[in-house]
C-alpha cells in the first residue's frame, strides 16, 4: 500500500511539475498521453490493481481515480490557459491596420434642398397639415387667373413665366395647387404643397428652377394670429431654436392682407452690422404669406363668408442655404460631387 501511495504521490509531483513547464498544446497532449494514454503511467497502474490483494484494491482504486480526475482537471485548466495564450499570440501577429481605407461602399449623401424640404414637411405634418401635389406644367387659369392675377396684370411682372409649345406654362409658384386642392377636398382644409417651380431668371441668387413649399389652411374663423403662430412654430423648429420674427405688409394678388415674414438673423441676431448672412439688417426674409383672398376661395368653390384661411409660400432652397451656409443657388442643381460630398466621398 505504501508503495502505491508513494507511487501516486510521485506521479502527482512529477505530473504537476511537467504541467507547469508545458508551454504549448502539443506538449500538453504529450503529457496527456504519457499519463492517461493507453500505455500511460496511470493507466498501467490501474491495470496493475489486479495484482493487489483484494482487501487493498478499493482504497488503491479510489486513490488512483482521484489522481486521474485531478490530472484531467489540471490538464483542462492548463489547456485553456495555453489556448488563450496561443490565441493572443496569433492575434498579435494577425494584425489589421484599422486606419486603412474601408472596403465596400459607404454612405452616399443627401441633397441639401431635398433634405430641408423633408424636414419642413415633417414640421407642418406635425401641425396637422397633409401633403398635396399638383402638376408642374400648368395652365394660365390655375397659375394666374384663379389666383386673382388677370392677364397683363403688372403682378405678372413679378414672375417671369416660361411657356411651352403646347400652350401651357411652367408653374411659377406652388399656389395653383391651392385652388386644385380646394376644389378637390373643400373646407376645412390644411395642406402643404412641396414642389418645383420655374421662373425665367438666372443669377447668383435666382435659378430658373427652384423649390417652393406652399401652405394653406381653411377653416371657420381663421385669424392672422393663427398664421403667425403656425409660422413662428415652424421657424423655431427648422432653425433649432425660437427666433424673433416680424411680419411686414406686402402684396400678393391671392392674399389679402398680404405679409412677408422676416426672422431674426440666426447668425448675428442683428448685432453685427457687417453680417454676411443678413447684410447687417438683422432680419432674413423667409417667406410671403397672407389671408387667402375671397376671390381665390370662390374659385376654389368655398364660401368666403363662412370660411376663410391663410396661405404662405416659402423657398426651401433659401432655407437650405441659410441652414447650411451656402451662397450660390445655382450650384445646387449642377450635381457636383465635390460640393455635395463636402469634398470627400
Amino acid at each position: 500500500m505504501e508503495t502505491i501511495n508513494a507511487k501516486i504521490a510521485n506521479i502527482r509531483e512529477n505530473m504537476m511539475q511537467e504541467l507547469d513547464s508545458a508551454g504549448s498544446s502539443e506538449s500538453l497532449q504529450a503529457l496527456r498521453v504519457r499519463y492517461l494514454g493507453k500505455r500511460g503511467e496511470l493507466t498501467q497502474m490501474l491495470r496493475s490493481l489486479g495484482n493487489l490483494p483484494p482487501e487493498k484494491r478499493p482504497a488503491a482504486g479510489q486513490a488512483l481515480n482521484e489522481l486521474r480526475q485531478e490530472i484531467e482537471a489540471a490538464l483542462e485548466a492548463r489547456s485553456l490557459l495555453i489556448a488563450r495564450a496561443e490565441d493572443e499570440a496569433r492575434e498579435a501577429t494577425d494584425f489589421v491596420d484599422v486606419t486603412l481605407p474601408p472596403r465596400g461602399r459607404g454612405w452616399g449623401g443627401f441633397h441639401p434642398v431635398v433634405q430641408t424640404m423633408n424636414e419642413i414637411i415633417d414640421i407642418f405634418v406635425g401641425m396637422g397639415f397633409s401633403v398635396a401635389y399638383g402638376p408642374e406644367i400648368e395652365d394660365d387659369f390655375h397659375n394666374f387667373e384663379a389666383l386673382n392675377i388677370p392677364p397683363h396684370h403688372p403682378a405678372r411682372d413679378m414672375q417671369d413665366t416660361f411657356y411651352l409649345d403646347n400652350g401651357r406654362l411652367l408653374r411659377t409658384h406652388t399656389s395653383p395647387v391651392e385652388v386644385r386642392a380646394m376644389l378637390r377636398w373643400g373646407a376645412p382644409l390644411r395642406i402643404i404643397v412641396p414642389g418645383k417651380v420655374y421662373r425665367r431668371d438666372s443669377d447668383q441668387t435666382h435659378s430658373p428652377m427652384f423649390h417652393q413649399l406652399e401652405g394653406l389652411l381653411i377653416d371657420e374663423d381663421v385669424s392672422l394670429a393663427d398664421l403667425k403662430g403656425c409660422l413662428n412654430t415652424f421657424v423655431g423648429a427648422i432653425f433649432g431654436r425660437p427666433l424673433d420674427s416680424r411680419f411686414r405688409a406686402s402684396y400678393f394678388p391671392f392674399t389679402e392682407p398680404s405679409l412677408e415674414m422676416d426672422v431674426e438673423c440666426f447668425a448675428c441676431s442683428g448685432r453685427n452690422p457687417s453680417c454676411r448672412i443678413c447684410k447687417g439688417t438683422g432680419w432674413l426674409e423667409i417667406l410671403g404669406c397672407g389671408m387667402t383672398h375671397p376671390n381665390v376661395l370662390r374659385y376654389g368653390g368655398i364660401d368666403p363668408d363662412r370660411y376663410n384661411g391663410f396661405a404662405w409660400g416659402m423657398g426651401p432652397d433659401r432655407v437650405a442655404m441659410l441652414k447650411y451656409g451656402l451662397t450660390d443657388l445655382r450650384v445646387l442643381f449642377e450635381g457636383h460631387g465635390s460640393f455635395l460630398t463636402g469634398g470627400g466621398y
Binding site: 461602399r105 452616399g108 443627401f110 455635395l340
Partner: peptide
C-alpha cells in the same frame, strides 16, 4: 444613400 448613392437635383429642362 445607404448604398452609396449621392442625391442630386438637376433642371427639369
Amino acid at each position: 444613400m445607404s448604398r452609396g448613392f449621392l442625391e442630386i437635383v438637376t433642371y427639369s429642362f
